[in-house]
């Protein structure tokens, strides 16, 4: 089955992801769009830069989607933006298609939470003067020995 995964410098197209997981047997499509916002933590944000260890991130995102598809009878499409984004631009988009809403919503939420925990991507907020601040994150889970 073709994986609907991407990590890209291009603008995201959430509607295309929803279309990609739509099927006659899917009575529900749940979607999530993460958007660069301002202010954040009391600071005005002008832009956000996403750094990425691409070879691992692409594999990890595919693993996350595959794990969701194993856990729920769902089809997942997910895209994460990297590079510099302005406020209001989409940074991550997820679509989960399934027969029922509970499964679609649960699978979509799972993918988002796993991205937060294990995708090797880092976020740097920039203020109006261009000064950057890396945001705190989650230590990566290590492979079991």
């Amino acid at each position: 089955m073709r994986r609907l995964i991407s990590i890209t410098k291009s603008r995201l197209d959430p509607a295309a992801l929803s279309r990609a997981v739509s099927a006659p047997k899917h009575g529900a499509v749940a979607s999530f769009i993460g958007i660069v916002r301002s202010p954040h933590a009391g600071r005005r944000v002008a832009a956000v830069s996403y750094d990425c260890f691409l070879p691992l991130a692409e594999k990890e995102l595919a693993r996350i989607a595959a794990a969701a598809e194993r856990r729920w009878p769902a089809r997942i499409a997910v895209a994460h933006r990297i590079g510099r984004l302005k406020v209001g631009e989409a940074s991550v988009a997820i679509a989960a298609g399934s027969a029922h809403r509970a499964q679609a919503c649960a699978a979509c939420r799972f993918v988002l939470e796993e991205i937060k925990l294990r995708l090797p991507i880092w976020k740097q907020e920039h203020d109006a003067r261009g000064a950057g601040r890396w945001l705190a994150g989650c230590a990566l889970p290590r492979k079991r020995s």
Partner: peptide, 24 residues
């Protein structure tokens, strides 16, 4: 391909040092 555990020997090839992640 993967995040290494503390006891893993470093393999040949590309290596990266990754701080706590913050995607989304």
């Amino acid at each position: 391909d993967e995040v290494l555990s503390s006891s893993n020997e470093l393999p040949a090839g590309r290596l990266a040092l990754l701080p706590p992640v913050c995607g989304g």
